[in-house]
Simulated assay, not measured.
Amino acid sequence: MASSALVPSPPPSPTYRVVKWAFVTPLFRLFLRGRCRGMELVPLSGPLVVVANHGSHLDPPLLGHALPRPVSFMAKAELFKIPVIGPLIRAMGAYPVSRGASDREAIRTALRRLEEGWATGVFLDGTRKASGRVEAPQLGAALLSARSGAPLLPVALVNTHRAFGPKQRWPRPVAVEIRVGQPIAPPASRSRADLDATTAQCQQAINALLEHPASPL
């Protein structure tokens, strides 16, 4: 479905706006003392595959909150069963994908939303990592990019794994930062070699963003 046409990004729904400003914004700005860097690098129109590291249950709503356009993102199906978190991420545009299986419906949903001009988010590892880094990236984001012609946007979620990591029962007020890197061109083809190369480029870009010094308060 590769196309160079820049389809306007759909406007956020009323539910999206309410959840963002009533719940996610106070969580990010006040409880987590959140900061953003590189938002000027986000393309504001056309399909976009947002790729990020994943260290926390907080990542989906924070990723949707940070960018200056709505993000429809994949999240593992188990998250939708968690009280509060499940309804929150669904309202922020998430849709479930089954971990460990080829979820063709989720891929079709992602491609359809890219055709509609959405930014679609993918956590590169597919599951949370205690280190907060990208360690074992999967090829799904590169494949979506290759099939849709959408560029990839690397985003680093800094310290979310410390705020509410895999072994924590409750979030902690740890300062977090969301950093955006330069967009990455789609793979040259759908060959395994090209998908591997683009995936490695995304991994390197995100981990490099994680290593940048924190913004001054």
Score class of each variant (00 low, 15 high):
residue 201 Q to Y: 09
residue 160 T to P: 02
residue 198 T to R: 14
residue 126 G to Y: 08
residue 165 G to R: 00
residue 7 V to H: 11
residue 71 V to A: 10
residue 158 V to G: 01
residue 78 E to T: 14
residue 209 L to F: 09
residue 18 V to S: 12
residue 139 L to K: 15
residue 129 K to M: 12
residue 36 C to A: 03
residue 160 T to C: 10
residue 96 P to C: 07
residue 63 L to P: 03
residue 204 Q to H: 15
residue 76 K to Q: 12
residue 160 T to I: 09
residue 23 F to Y: 11
residue 160 T to F: 07
residue 144 L to F: 10
residue 12 P to I: 08
residue 188 A to Y: 03
residue 114 L to C: 08
residue 44 L to I: 04
residue 199 T to S: 12
residue 112 R to G: 14
residue 1 M to Q: 12
residue 59 D to I: 01
residue 202 C to S: 14
residue 136 A to E: 15
residue 103 D to C: 07
residue 111 L to A: 11
residue 71 V to H: 01
residue 207 N to R: 12
residue 68 P to C: 11
residue 215 S to C: 12
residue 56 S to Y: 05
residue 19 V to E: 02
residue 88 L to M: 15
residue 166 P to M: 12
residue 6 L to E: 09
residue 39 M to Q: 12
residue 165 G to L: 00
residue 55 G to D: 04
residue 11 P to R: 13
residue 170 W to A: 14
residue 215 S to P: 12
residue 87 P to Y: 08
residue 33 R to T: 00
residue 217 L to E: 13
residue 205 A to F: 09
residue 211 E to F: 00
residue 169 R to H: 15
residue 137 P to F: 07
residue 181 G to W: 07
residue 41 L to M: 13
residue 64 G to L: 01
residue 180 V to R: 02
residue 81 K to D: 15
residue 67 L to V: 10
residue 57 H to Y: 13
residue 53 N to S: 08
residue 20 K to H: 13
residue 133 R to G: 02
residue 26 P to W: 05
residue 107 I to C: 01
residue 75 A to E: 01
residue 42 V to W: 05
residue 38 G to T: 06
residue 136 A to N: 13
residue 206 I to Y: 06
residue 27 L to K: 01
residue 184 I to E: 10
residue 137 P to C: 10
residue 8 P to W: 09
residue 111 L to M: 14
residue 144 L to M: 11
residue 164 F to P: 02
residue 172 R to C: 03
residue 133 R to H: 10
residue 49 V to A: 10
residue 143 L to E: 00
residue 15 T to K: 14
residue 130 A to E: 14
residue 101 A to R: 14
residue 166 P to L: 14
residue 150 A to N: 09
residue 33 R to N: 09
residue 52 A to Q: 03
residue 94 A to Q: 04
residue 162 R to H: 11
residue 118 W to A: 03
residue 187 P to G: 02
residue 16 Y to K: 00
residue 138 Q to E: 13
residue 4 S to K: 13
residue 11 P to I: 06
residue 87 P to W: 07
residue 214 A to C: 11
residue 82 I to D: 03
